[in-house]
Amino acid sequence: MAASAQVLPAARVSRLGQTGWAISDALVMTRRNLLVWFRVPAYLVFTVVQPVMFVLLFRYVFGGAIPVSVSGGYVDFLMPGIIAQTAAFASFATAIALAEGMKQGVIDRLRSMPMARSAVLAGRLLADAIRMLVTVLVIVGVGYAVGFRFQAGLAGAAGMVLFAELFGIVICCVSGYIGLAIKDQESVQAFGLIWLFPLTFVSSAFVPIATMPGWLQAFALHQPVTLVINAMRAMALGGEVWTPLWQSLLWLGGALLVFSPLAVRAYRRG
């Protein structure tokens, strides 16, 4: 094999330009990541079991004690919140996979190859976005089984799912940066993503904010996850969409502007 080894493989490389290869590499990495997910049934189950438990817990255990002023009752109030939380928690996988890749040298190994350097992050994000979409759709299905109904038509339903997806991708960028920076999956699991809990629970996801003490309301009302959930709820059930939508888009855009360059930098530095 060495006789040909002295020749640069450039001649064998087909005509895709640099951008073409970047896309091709990202898709190969996406496929690799999704294959891992499909190959291990436990991953599949864990991905959906936790949000399903949340649906059942809040629908049947806590829900009766939480008064809401939504026409379909608590289950309609609950589902957009659960779906937003599901999308946000999907980023655990992103952070853990990147931390593991950094620690065990997998990412280094890929960076020593002629593939596009962007493909590791792009492939991770794309695979996680697809996984997130599947999970969200499963949860919508479970929601339907326990009485949830979209009330603002197909466009509203699709809009809510897509917005949840966008929200989840932004959170994946933040978590991905944390994973790349911490470089240790146990630490990521233990405390790297702990900030997601107050953000998703001290929000309008599970209870009306008016039931919280005043000092907490100030935070809950204005934090981005509440804005995202309010926009999703309005898309799912009807109501004023635009105000929470543009406000949350500002937050999401800001987070993306801050954290994606940070993530890329952490990745480059290795």
Partner: peptide, 23 residues
Amino acid sequence: TAIQVELTARENLEIIGRLTHLP
């Protein structure tokens, strides 16, 4: 470090081959 343990030996090689930009 190049190996994704969940995938088969063949899949691992094929993926690395694709990332090396071979037809």
